[in-house]
């Protein structure tokens, strides 16, 4: 049976057509996704990578909520100029506790993967309240509402941690029990800064080659 005859069967039988489309379109995804789900290098954390603390997790969720990843990538490519500008290139093992991943697709602002420790907490605070106070030409939005809100206003930190625990993150029950106290009184802006300050601290220097560049 040649292709045209096969197609004739498909175009005269709606069930076959549905099945045909599903089959043909599924192949590519299966070949690319299934092996990567079992590839250890993608799911093994680098030695310095740890789970987010409750405060950092709340901060990360604020980062997601405000759509920061729309303008800021968290992915330093193994290119000379990029390493010079931002720091050691990103490794897959640094992201194993990231749900969702926040690599981004656009740099309206700079990459943030190695932002942790580059600026003081107070700098971040001023910058988040009004970016133009520290970067005159900045086009980043101001986030004054983060100042007054409690990071755990919805009192759902335990639910969040438990969801991640169910997904296999190594939170122990004591951490989850203690979490509401740990995040007590923490404002959204503090949580976000805590997250920013730990970003990129998980890189494994020994795994990078001498020049730090990949090609």
């Amino acid at each position: 049976m040649n292709g045209l005859q096969l197609h004739k069967k498909l175009e005269e039988n709606s069930a076959l057509l549905i099945f045909g489309i599903l089959f043909v379109s599924a192949i590519g995804g299966l070949v690319q996704i299934v092996p990567s789900l079992f590839q250890e290098s993608l799911s093994t954390p680098t030695p310095n990578t740890r789970d987010y603390s409750p405060v950092e997790l709340l901060g990360r969720d604020i980062y997601v909520r405000e759509g920061c990843s729309v303008c800021h990538s968290q992915q330093i490519r193994p290119l000379l100029a990029e390493i010079e500008r931002y720091g050691p290139y990103s490794q897959a093992g640094e992201f194993v506790y990231d749900r969702p991943f926040l690599w981004g697709s656009k740099r309206t602002g700079p990459d943030l993967h190695r932002i942790g420790g580059k600026y003081s907490d107070i700098w971040h605070r001023v910058h988040l309240i009004n970016p133009r106070d520290v970067v005159p030409n900045s086009i980043m939005p101001s986030y004054p509402w983060l100042v007054d809100r409690d990071a755990n206003a919805a009192e759902d930190i335990q639910a969040r941690l438990r969801a991640l625990q169910r997904l296999g993150h190594p939170y122990d029950d004591e951490t989850i029990e203690a979490a509401p106290v740990a995040v007590q009184g923490v404002k959204e802006i503090d949580a976000l800064i805590a997250y920013l300050q730990m970003l990129g601290t998980g890189h494994d220097a020994s795994a990078l080659d001498a020049h730090g560049a990949g090609h």
């Binding site: 690319q32 996704i33 799911s43 506790y97 990231d98 690599w103 969801a163 991640l164 997904l167």
Partner: peptide, 24 residues
């Protein structure tokens, strides 16, 4: 995804795997 509350869930895939699934 794994729901935490009515308004918040966490992707079933972590990090690099999430990236591959997302761009698929």
């Amino acid at each position: 995804a794994m729901p935490a509350t009515w308004f918040k869930s966490y992707s079933a895939f972590p990090g690099a795997q999430d990236a591959i699934v997302q761009w698929w």
